[in-house]
């Protein structure tokens, strides 16, 4: 399980864990807390091409639906079917059991545009989240 300090973050509250040419994507602890109980997840399709900052998945709490955006461009290389079956995992284990999907990166340089933990904390504090 990655520590949240080691992850990269987007302004739309996805986290990214890069291992070589593949990145695991999930929803930040801050975001799951703000959304409340997650009851439905629509994951991308297997092998689907995704584009940086374009919506590629949906999570729904009891009250609202939220789009998830691809943090980087590439192709979906793995999906977490457990979280589709049991969406509340996102609230219980947002960084570990509730990773959502993996992307095979098409442009690894895009990772540099993302926030590190310190910058993300600052971003949240400023209330832009």
């Amino acid at each position: 399980m990655p520590k949240q300090e080691e992850l990269k973050y987007t302004k739309t509250h996805e986290w990214l864990h890069v291992q070589g040419s593949e990145a695991t994507v999930g929803l930040s602890d801050h975001a799951q807390h703000e959304m409340g109980d997650i009851v439905f997840v629509e994951l991308p399709k297997a092998a689907q091409a995704v584009e940086k900052e374009k919506p590629c998945a949906v999570v729904e709490s009891v009250k609202s639906a939220f789009d998830l955006y691809a943090p980087v461009s590439g192709r979906i290389s793995a999906l977490n079917e457990d979280v589709a079956k049991e969406p509340i995992l996102i609230n219980q284990s947002p960084l570990d059991k509730a990773w959502l999907f993996k992307i095979k990166l098409s442009d690894p340089d895009q990772v540099k545009d993302l926030m590190d933990w310190t910058a993300y904390q600052e971003f949240i504090k400023q209330g832009r989240g």
């Binding site: 409340g36 109980d37 009851v39 709490s61 009891v62 009250k63």
Partner: peptide
């Protein structure tokens, strides 16, 4: 309050 610990709970 819209919720406290969570709507499901």
């Amino acid at each position: 309050p819209i919720r406290f610990e969570g709507i499901l709970k």
